[in-house]
Design a binder for these strands. Structure first.
Lengths: 252, 252
DNA sequence: GGAATAGTGTCTCTTAGACAATATGTT
DNA sequence: AACATATTGTCTAAGAGACACTATTCC
């Protein structure tokens, strides 16, 4: 059924060199009102010793998103049902000093209880960095040991990716349900749990009363968020009402 | 300066097959409260006779965005200072029946007075299609001659791209200044001109008084939109105040 | 009772929507 | 004057932010 004309048309692009394509994954999590990103330390040039985001080359039989999931698992051990959102494709000609590589960047939002990582294939060191926003809008990343990373300490254009990802999450925070993807248990959480996640992403403290109104107004009518009657959790102070989140009933 | 190790590291990916990468461009314009998209008709298989979005293969020395600009010019003659916004990368394995092709999709917002097109390289026919949104949220495209395109009439995954693009523009309409990029003259427009663009993108009619307040509240204080005193334009009815838009002063 | 956390109520301010009223041009 | 379009004003309702107050648990 394929004419010679078709054949030529189809193979024409082979005359051109093709770029390589990678998927890179920006893994975020939240803990105690703070946002964290997972980075891996490069042991080989280029950018040996610098920190980077996990990622790797797309195979011919997988989508860019599948690549992201596979590489994340290979390099960090993180697997399971990871919530991914496509960020942006980075295509600057010289973004990799070795050769032409395009990168499709993904944001992964992972609750801290599912974030069990260990260095994997081609990875020597992995660490979580706290995201610190300064008044002058530049972003710093701080490890538990007090190591502070700035633009220069981060490989390739990954600093740019990180900034874009944070900006995207901040922007989508108030009109989507992305914050729920950071909940350790979407079937069993308190409004304080959820508020700490909002605080982490927005980089500010939400008022406790106003936040309650905001969430309940927005999500209770549609049945997306429902109280679990009778449930409670042992903690200091007055016990909080437990809620559940139902992805299927969400609006958008 | 390059060690053997580096050399090997650099060339490792050559062991793998690489996908081809294209940039596709979704050209939108507005006219009389309506949104339009530019499509080209395919003359060769696959999808011969179907309508598609312009686009083509990325070269090794250009970014995906530069490809978009170049192909748009080659295929339609449209050039100049085109406002592009990256939409999304499409990477389904079978999205092109010939071979593995990833596509980085861009939205181009072009005022109708700059939209002078003519079939170019590899293009037989070009047309503008009015975007019609039905209540049941599926989108139809209607040409001037009354031709109606639905999902099945559109090549590749381009229908999906179109829907995503419209959704993106609708979403960004109220909290960004994308509508201004459709103004025939950003240095000389009336609020009615601008409102027709908002109507086109949102697919509804804005109230004339409320719209005025919305724009002036939002953009006058920062100096992004300023009145041009004394200016006017001959038309029926009371002459409108003329404004100018200053990109440099826009918020973000 | 005191500490700690959860949840409610109130006030203000801003903004969006509906829509009436007024202003200023043309014919 | 009649018409067409532009501009202003008014009323209402919803939502965000600040913040004071009440409730429930544990010690």
């Amino acid at each position: 059924m394929i004419s010679e004309k078709d054949f030529l048309a189809a193979y024409h692009p082979d005359a051109y060199e093709r770029p390589s394509v990678t998927s890179d994954i920006l893994v975020f999590t939240t803990k105690q009102h703070q946002l964290y990103i997972l980075l891996i330390r490069r042991s080989e040039p280029p950018y040996a010793g610098k920190w980077a985001v996990p990622g790797g080359f797309i195979r011919m039989n997988e989508t860019a998103e599948q690549t992201a999931i596979r590489k994340l698992h290979e390099e960090t051990g993180i697997g399971g049902d990871v919530y991914l959102e496509q960020l942006q494709t980075f295509s600057a000609v010289d973004r990799d000093p070795r050769m032409r590589i395009l990168s499709v960047a993904y944001i992964a939002m992972i609750p801290k209880n599912k974030l069990n990582y260990a260095p994997g294939v081609g990875t020597s060191e992995i660490a979580l960095f706290e995201v610190r926003r300064n008044e002058n809008t530049d972003i710093q990343l701080c490890s538990e040991e007090g190591l502070i990373l700035k633009n220069e300490d981060i490989a390739f254009d990954h600093y740019e990716m990180i900034c874009a990802a944070i900006h995207r999450m901040e922007g989508k925070l108030d009109y989507t349900d992305i914050a729920f993807s950071f909940l350790p248990d979407q079937e069993f959480f308190t409004l304080t749990d959820l508020r700490e996640i909002y605080d982490a992403i927005a980089g500010k403290r939400y008022d406790i009363g106003n936040f309650r109104r905001f969430i309940l107004n927005r999500y209770v009518e549609s049945g997306t968020v429902r109280e679990i009657p009778g449930a409670s959790r042992k903690e200091r102070g007055r016990p909080a009402v437990i809620y559940r989140f139902d992805k299927k009933k969400r609006l958008c």
